[in-house]
Each structure stands twice: as C-alpha cells, then as structure tokens.
C-alpha cells in the first residue's frame, strides 16, 4: 500500500522534470565526438587515402562484416582495391578503429543509416571514404613507416637516418 502510494507520488513529481523525449527528426540528438556510429575511411593531411589495406580491421571484426583487398600503386603505396562493410551485420563495437594502425577507419557520431532494403546497407569504398582527416588530424602513416612509397624517400621520414652507404668503412 505504502509502496503504491510512493510510486504514484514519484510519477506525479516527474511531471515537473525536464523532458527527455525530443521531437526527432525536427530536433537533432546531441552526439558526443566519441560516439560510435557510421564507419568512415579518412584521408591523411595530403588527402591521400589513409587505409593501407593491412586487414587488421577485418581480422578484429567480431561479426566479420569487413572485407577488402589490398593493392599497390606504381610507387608501392598500398591502398584498398575495394573496401566493403556490411552494415546490416555491423554491431558498431569500434574494434576496427582500435585495430587500425593508420587512423584510417573511424566511427563517427552519425546513426542515420536506415534503409528500406537490406542490400542498401552494404557500403563500398566510395560510400565510406570521406575527404577529411576525421578525429585524428595531422597523422600520416607513410611518414613514419620505414618503406618508401612515393610519400617520402628512404630515410626522409620522421626519425629516420639517411640511407646507409654500404661502401663506407667509417664507424
């Protein structure tokens, strides 16, 4: 009896609280920067594709919804020939972003992806790639990687000695 009265009382008090329900879609939800929503592929500061096709996102994905094929341009720079995410399987866990060594794959604060056809939830590279650095500006993987791929020459990267002269006998 007391419990019932208490419940009625509490419910009554809620009438004077601030409203949680919003008038979506007229009114938009406030999403925080770290909110895990739609997955995008970003570009490096030189606007080159960040993704190097290392397959780590695909391996980390618990529902195996990422599939890609790495290929190389004439300079030896790796990029994905195709990159496919099946969003009808994606659980937005963010493991792919965590696994990505180049900050290419990122989850952004956007959830408005509903479709009438499930087939339309399959995103290809054209749908995923954006012209932005996303959450991690300034990072260019090929500047810190050892190999030369058209971005920098051998020994010209961050924290690199010039190439060894193997004919030199100096210590």
């Amino acid at each position: 009896m007391i419990s019932n009265l208490r419940t009625i009382g509490l419910t009554f008090l809620h009438m004077f609280r601030k409203r949680e329900t919003i008038q979506y879609p007229e009114e938009k939800v406030v999403l925080h920067p770290r909110w895990r929503g739609r997955i995008v592929l970003t570009r490096d500061p030189d606007m080159g594709e960040r993704c190097v096709g290392c397959y780590l996102c695909a391996a980390a994905c618990p529902v195996d919804c990422i599939s890609l094929q790495a290929t190389e341009d004439e300079n030896g720079r790796r990029y994905p020939e195709f990159f496919r995410i099946n969003f009808s399987r994606c659980i937005f866990c963010g493991y792919c972003e965590e696994a990505c060594p180049t900050y290419a794959i990122q989850l952004i604060p956007d959830f408005e992806m509903a479709e009438y056809q499930r087939q339309d939830l399959v995103y290809e590279k054209e749908d995923l790639l954006i012209d932005s650095e996303g959450k991690y500006p300034g990072y260019n993987y090929y500047k810190v990687a050892g190999l030369a791929s058209g971005v920098k020459g051998k020994g010209e990267g961050t924290n690199e000695e010039p190439p060894v002269d193997i004919h030199s006998l100096l210590p």
């Binding site: 397959y55 695909a58 391996a59 994905c61 529902v63 195996d64 919804c65 990422i66 599939s67 890609l68 496919r84 995410i85 099946n86 009808s88 399987r89 499930r118 087939q119 939830l121 399959v122 290809e124």
Partner: peptide
Amino acid sequence: HRYSGRTAMLANINVS
C-alpha cells in the same frame, strides 16, 4: 580461426 570477411565478401552480390 581468424579468417575474416565472411559476412561481407559476397555481400555486394547478395546481402544474405
């Protein structure tokens, strides 16, 4: 056991 992409590799043809 780490084989990846099972639910995406053929999704371009048919999502099922």
